[in-house]
């Protein structure tokens, strides 16, 4: 066991799969010599050579295109999009091409691609770096969308994503990259996609969340416990597909739920979770399922960011509305 930050766990996962499978290729802007702007690919080029880990020209659409082409040649591409706000530049490759490859070709071809990309607020980036765009991805049929909230999960989920034979969008919250360390086994292990993690058990309220909001939700749960509430926290880990069984089992137990996301409120993951709970467990509910989200605006410039982003106080406030309903 080693103590690792999330970024170290990600590098470790990449190294593991580069070693395991010669078809794994890691590429993107500045991922080679520079080791990536966040050092996620630190030393990988040195270790595995320029043929396996390489820099590309500065063009996200081109990166998506070569990922698809390399996939057609039997490779297992792991491209990095330097910041997920640049998604719009590669949107056709993601939503128009790789997500449809299996159906379009009747299973003759697939896109075993894992797109890694940093996202998320709280680190005062310029515009178009921090946006939570996972809702767009989750609404795109044919994609899996994974968002780890801890170093341990990041390694196991990334290895599973790379081994998956369908395209996976693997989103890495920038604030979590170096915010804490935890024990991460040096040997390989996988965490299955589509399986949530119960971070904390409770019987009065379920908080369903993912990404950096997992930390805020745990903090809120701890505060609420001081006031006598027993709060369960579920980290979705994969937002497409959802782990519907874990969500529903929790809600049936607690009878009350809130969904917490960093993204804007409209048409997002939280709305989808609420709808699924309504579809499947409405008779178990003692209160409406409420959401904690950012406002329905574009991502705030950095001066307004601290208030724009939801935090544990917002979670407590909404949790109390549901608990006291």
């Amino acid at each position: 066991m080693a103590q690792m930050t999330m970024i170290q766990a990600i590098t470790d996962a990449l190294r593991t799969e580069l070693k395991n499978d010669e078809n794994v290729l890691v590429f993107g802007e500045d991922v080679g010599k520079n080791g990536g702007v966040f050092r996620a690919t630190e030393n990988l080029q040195k270790e595995f050579g320029e043929d396996r880990v390489f820099d590309t020209p500065l063009a996200e659409s081109g990166i998506g295109g070569i990922a698809i082409g390399l996939g057609l040649q039997g490779y297992r591409p792991v491209p990095e999009i330097q910041f997920f706000g640049f998604l719009f530049e590669v949107m056709d490759s993601v939503a128009g091409q790789m997500s449809r490859m299996r159906y379009r070709s009747g299973g003759r071809y697939n896109s075993p691609i894992t797109i890694r990309s940093p996202f998320g607020g709280g680190v005062h980036t310029p515009e178009m770096h921090a946006d939570s765009l996972e809702g767009l991805m989750a609404q795109t049929p044919g994609l899996k969308v994974v968002i780890p909230s801890s170093p341990y999960d990041a390694k196991g989920l990334l290895i599973s994503s790379i081994r998956d034979n369908d395209p996976v969008i693997f989103l890495e919250h920038m604030k979590l990259y170096r915010s804490f360390r935890e024990d991460v086994p040096e040997e390989e292990y996988t965490i299955p996609l589509g399986v949530a993690s119960v971070k904390r058990e409770g019987k009065d309220l379920s908080i369903i969340t993912y990404g950096a909001m997992v930390q805020e939700s745990i903090k809120a749960a701890e505060e609420l416990e001081k006031e006598g509430y027993s709060v369960e926290v579920i980290d979705l880990r994969t937002i497409a597909p959802l782990d519907i069984d874990t969500i529903i089992a929790s809600v049936e137990k607690t009878g009350r739920a809130i969904v917490v996301q960093e993204a804007q409120k409209q048409a997002g993951i939280a709305a989808n979770v609420v709808a699924e709970i309504n579809d499947r467990a409405i008779l178990s509910l003692d209160a409406p399922v409420l959401r904690v989200t950012a406002a329905d605006t574009v991502f705030a410039f950095s001066q307004a960011e601290p208030v724009w982003l939801p935090n544990y106080k917002d979670v407590i406030e909404t949790a109390k509305k549901v608990l006291n309903f």
Binding site: S61, G65, G69, L70, Q97
Partner: peptide, 12 residues
């Protein structure tokens, strides 16, 4: 789209 994918197939 076929142009960027062709670059990828060729690279492969």
């Amino acid at each position: 789209a076929q142009y960027i994918q062709a670059a990828g197939v060729a690279l492969g």
